[in-house]
Design a protein around this nucleic acid. Structure first.
Lengths: 146, 146
DNA sequence: TTCGTAATATAGCCAAGGCTTCATATTCTA
DNA sequence: TAGAATATGAAGCCTTGGCTATATTACGAA
């Protein structure tokens, strides 16, 4: 390939703008997904998801977790009563499951192409949110046929 | 602390919090990287990077691009003079090059594992920012040895 | 049963990154 | 070279997702 003056790939400004817009959209979903997955994990592990635990594991202060839960409720992904735990709605649970599967698949694929496990786990935390269904399908096929 | 059901993966709360914190940090770099890469591309293609072009290709309104450029300047990645184009500092150029290489490697790897090109290009836009140097090395090795 | 502590909620602040609207500078063309 | 069109900048607003500090509630021990 040429060094510099080559436009990386000929792509129309509009199409490129669309890609960035979609990436931004996915990013706005990312935190929701992280919290939903976390809540699901905590319920699986401890039978309940307390705000304090969520905050601790997400690495944020309690009020930040409280705010996030409020947003989850607004989006119909979770429920909670003051001073009681947080629970997932059916929709939230479905999302949590999908996210969990995707996370595992991403980690497995990274490992399959030679990424050290620790690194794979860490990078997957950010990567997963940008893996489309189509890409996930390809990952699954690759892992199967490999 | 009952430990019955399957905890997705045994990981200490602290370590998990660290992962999320690092993912958040990378996210805060992502937009900077996108703009720097875009500016580099525009200069390569048109000899200059105008705010209007940056905005159009990023899919945002002009003032948003202006603000982003202001942040780039604050971070020592770019320079600009009112009503003149935007330019990259050495630091900015170095970042742009690194980002461009990483982007291409991510796209190539996705394609190599069976992701359709269009999808690969689109997903890479979000994925790339979360690919660590270590993971990138693994990608390169995989693409070479394959 | 009361009370101290721990958990949770509320309020208010900040920066980032979007937006629109309006003002101003530059450039192009007639 | 003047005036219109275009490009840039400035101001102000919104939401998100962080934070700290301060109230309030719940709960286990004395």
């Amino acid at each position: 390939m040429t060094e510099h003056d080559t436009p990386p790939t000929e792509i129309s400004p509009t199409e490129q703008a669309g890609r960035f817009a979609r990436a931004r959209e996915k990013q706005s979903m990312a935190i929701l997904e992280d919290y939903v997955e976390m809540i699901g994990d905590l319920i699986a592990m401890h039978g309940e998801a307390r705000v304090a635990d969520i905050a601790e594991r997400m690495g944020v202060a309690h009020p930040t977790a409280t705010k996030a839960v409020a947003r989850l409720k607004r989006e119909g992904l979770a429920t909670s009563r003051p001073y009681r735990g947080v629970f997932l709605t059916d929709k939230g649970e479905a999302l949590a499951n999908w996210v969990r599967v995707r996370h595992r698949t991403v980690v497995d694929l990274l490992i399959a192409v030679g990424v050290p496990q620790e690194t794979a786990e860490a990078d997957a935390e950010g990567i997963e949110h940008h893996v489309s269904r189509r890409t996930l399908k390809a990952f699954e096929a690759y892992l199967t046929d490999k």
